Simulated scan of single mutants.
Amino acid sequence: MAEQNQTVGLIGIGQLGIPVATNLLQAGFRVVGYRRHDREEFVRLGGKAVESPAAVAQEADVILLCLPSEQASQEVLEGNNGMLGALGSQHVVVEMGTYRKAFKLAQAEKITATGARVLEAEISGSPPMVASHKAAVYAGGDLDVLDVCRPILEAITPNLFHLGEYGKAVSMKLIANYLLAIHTLAAAEAMNMGARAGFDPKLVAEVIQKGAGGSAMFGVRAPLMAARSFSPAPGPFNTLEKYLHLGRAMADELGCATPLFSAASPYFERALADGMGDEDIAAVIKLIEADSKT
């Protein structure tokens, strides 16, 4: 359990932030959070909502940033009542958002200029995986800073990995999401093949996951495909879009051959172009079905 009354700040209490907050609250932490709107669920869970990023820093020494975009991150740091002006040497800022590595390093420089310390903690896993403590956290930064944050991060998930200096975690996250796209499309191919072979899709989802063909993404997405349950989406195409671009840029920079990603990526791009952005990426099976022979 957490030290009694220990407070954790959380900026970004959306689709991923809510299960993060839930796990922290269940572990005994007091959680103070900020989001511009839709704070009701966070409050209902037991969190305390405040009116600005600066207010979070005034109540918590360890602050988690769980934001969807570079623009949102920049606004939280430097916007009206932004966090930068409230930071000091007592603070640790844990960046959980996935952005370009150069952007993350620039943001870290701004934070450390205040005297605060930084840690990178990329979450690999869907919101349901976070809720069930089955996600992984990839940490980048100094080990002494990680040790300060370790009880907090291990309350989110026991699967915590230190990968080296600040900036290393985002590289591993992009590799993980690179595979996520490939594995989801592979799951869709298998589910479509099973249905066309005359099997109940729910049976395919259950049986394949128990054998050699199972994977983390098959376990998450195949049941959604079997149930045709694509909305509300735990992982929509709109969210995956930036990972496709960042993953491609990283592979190109490293000179990697990408035969499977190059085959998978166009399917997700096509889903976005077809207006499926708000659906879960499991809906890629609809494109596989459409391309199959009648």
Results as ranks from 00 to 15, higher is better:
M1Y: 14
T7S: 03
L10C: 03
G12L: 05
I13L: 09
G17A: 03
V20T: 08
L25H: 11
F29L: 01
G33Y: 04
G33Q: 02
H37D: 15
D38G: 12
D38P: 10
R39C: 10
F42Q: 05
R44A: 15
G46S: 01
K48I: 14
A54H: 03
A55C: 11
E59F: 07
I63P: 04
L64S: 02
L65E: 08
C66R: 00
C66H: 02
P68R: 00
S69C: 12
A72N: 06
G97L: 09
F103R: 01
F103G: 06
A108I: 02
E109T: 14
I111Q: 06
T112Q: 15
A113G: 08
A113I: 10
T114C: 11
L119F: 09
A121I: 08
G125T: 06
S126F: 08
S126P: 14
S126W: 00
P127K: 00
A131N: 13
H133E: 06
A136N: 14
Y138K: 03
Y138E: 08
A139C: 15
G140K: 01
G141I: 01
D142C: 05
L143H: 14
L143W: 10
D144G: 12
V145C: 03
V145I: 09
L146N: 04
C149V: 11
R150P: 08
L153Y: 10
A155Q: 05
T157E: 07
P158E: 08
L160K: 02
E165Y: 13
G167N: 07
A169G: 15
S171F: 12
S171Y: 11
A176M: 04
L179R: 07
L180C: 11
E189T: 03
E189H: 08
E189M: 02
A190I: 08
M191L: 05
M193N: 04
A195F: 00
F199P: 03
P201T: 05
K202C: 06
L203C: 12
E206R: 10
I208V: 13
I208W: 03
K210E: 14
G214T: 07
A216S: 13
F218E: 04
V220S: 11
L224F: 00
L224M: 10
M225S: 00
F230T: 10
S231P: 04
P232G: 08
F237M: 01
N238P: 13
N238I: 09
Y243A: 12
L244A: 12
H245R: 09
A249Q: 09
E253A: 13
G255N: 10
A257Q: 13
L260Q: 11
S262H: 13
A263Q: 14
S265Q: 14
Y267P: 04
Y267L: 09
R270E: 13
L272R: 01
D278Y: 09
D280K: 03
A282T: 10
A282Q: 07
I285W: 02
I285T: 00
I285Q: 06
I285M: 06
E289G: 14
S292G: 12
K293G: 13
